[in-house]
Amino acid sequence: MAMADHKDDKSGKPAQGQPPRERGGWLAKIAPGVRNLVAKRETPDNLWVKCPDTGEMLYRPDLEAALWVTPSGSHMRIGAAQRLRYTFDDGRFERIPSPVVVDDPLKFPDDKPYADRLKAARKATGEQDSMAIAFGNIRGEPAVVIVQDFNFMGGSLGMGAGEAFIKAAEEAVRRKVPLVIFTASGGARMQEGTLSLMQMARTTLALNEVKAAGLPYIVVLTDPTTGGVSASYAMLGDIHIAEPNAMIAFSGRRVIEQTIREVLPPGFQRAEFLVERGMVDLVAARSELPDVLASVLKTLMLGRARARAA
């Protein structure tokens, strides 16, 4: 008598003609509801974040509570909305809309259309371009703040960012308050060619208006600040503050070493090295920045008030 017709095959599946086995085993038979209680729960993909320094997996809520500063001290890159919440009192501020510019003025040819890159960046960040503007109080001191978002096409400087910077400068003059910028950029936006490079001159001219009004301009250099941004408005502040270990440079190590034919010291493009050489005034941890900024703004605005009185 052939018995093979009633046995499972080696794959563990019932043989042809045999009814499928009830799943769940003995536990499901005696307590059907238990299976749902002990079922495997799905873990969100973004619940753990890898530390860029140590490779340690960090619990996301703990990292958010620490302002995205890891236990090793690494200041991770953050978006514009987070930066504004961390900077202003109680996370409250007034957003100032940026001017609208033509998206693809040069019809730049690429493996992916520039217009599509912009759409993707806007969807990912929720911002119109790489700069966001807001007005509010920093420990009671009013200021217009610009945040450059590295998540938006590497914080690149294009027409949209240039117009946003000019708008922020105009708002600071109109409201008679200081202008603060958090820089983070890989440099000029190649898809806009010369139009991008023109923003270096245009932002500098806008700063002249701020300084002519006797208003402070404070730069907070975050990781990374490079290229045409470091060659223009990022280095024109009255005071330059940097986050720990922020990369601040014009071009990369290899390019510089090949140009001058010398080996450069370790960390020569980091904030701490630049403080020692006088290029940056001080380094401040992210949690300390509101207090540091408020102290600087209060001191500089007090000097302005005395000058006006005199």
Rank of each mutant, 00 (worst) to 15 (best):
P105A: 12
T54I: 03
T125M: 08
Y217M: 11
V229G: 03
P109M: 06
R306K: 13
P97W: 06
P61W: 11
A121E: 07
Q148H: 12
E262A: 14
K167E: 15
R92F: 03
G155I: 03
S232K: 01
G154V: 04
A132G: 04
P142M: 14
E209H: 02
L63M: 07
P142E: 14
G160R: 05
E56Y: 11
V177F: 13
F135H: 15
T259H: 14
D116W: 07
N46V: 06
T43L: 07
A285W: 06
F93E: 05
R254K: 15
P61F: 09
D116I: 01
K176T: 02
P14C: 05
G155D: 09
E288R: 14
M200C: 14
M57G: 02
V263H: 13
E209D: 13
K123A: 14
G237I: 04
K211P: 01
A234F: 01
Y114V: 08
L293V: 08
H6W: 03
K123E: 13
G140M: 07
F108Y: 15
K176P: 00
F273N: 11
L207Y: 05
L282C: 09
F182A: 03
R253T: 12
E272V: 07
G186W: 10
T87F: 02
P71L: 10
S295N: 15
D90G: 00
A28E: 11
K29T: 08
R175H: 06
P61Q: 08
A242H: 04
K176H: 12
Q199M: 15
F150W: 14
P265Y: 12
V49E: 10
G237N: 04
A169N: 06
K112H: 10
L207G: 05
Q82M: 06
D5K: 12
A132D: 01
S185L: 11
Q128P: 00
P14D: 06
E64M: 09
F182P: 00
E127F: 05
G154Y: 09
I96V: 15
F268L: 04
F150Q: 11
G12S: 02
A305P: 00
G55I: 06
A81C: 01
R83I: 00
A66T: 02
F182M: 09
K29G: 02
V101M: 08
G91Y: 05
V101L: 04
Q16D: 08
Y233C: 02
P266A: 05
D238C: 00
H6T: 11
D104C: 09
S72V: 02
G227R: 10
D223L: 12
P109S: 12
T299L: 15
V292H: 14
T54M: 04
A212Q: 13
Q16S: 04
A213W: 05
E56V: 11
R139V: 01
D9E: 07
Q82K: 12
G237Y: 04
P14E: 05
Y217W: 07
V144I: 13
C51M: 02
I181L: 15
K211G: 03
G79D: 14
V210F: 03
Q199R: 11
N36A: 15
G227Q: 08
D103N: 10
M57S: 12
S232Y: 02
E209S: 08
A120M: 10
K40S: 11
I218P: 08
G155M: 07
R60N: 11
D104R: 13
S98H: 05
K211E: 13
A305S: 09
A168V: 03
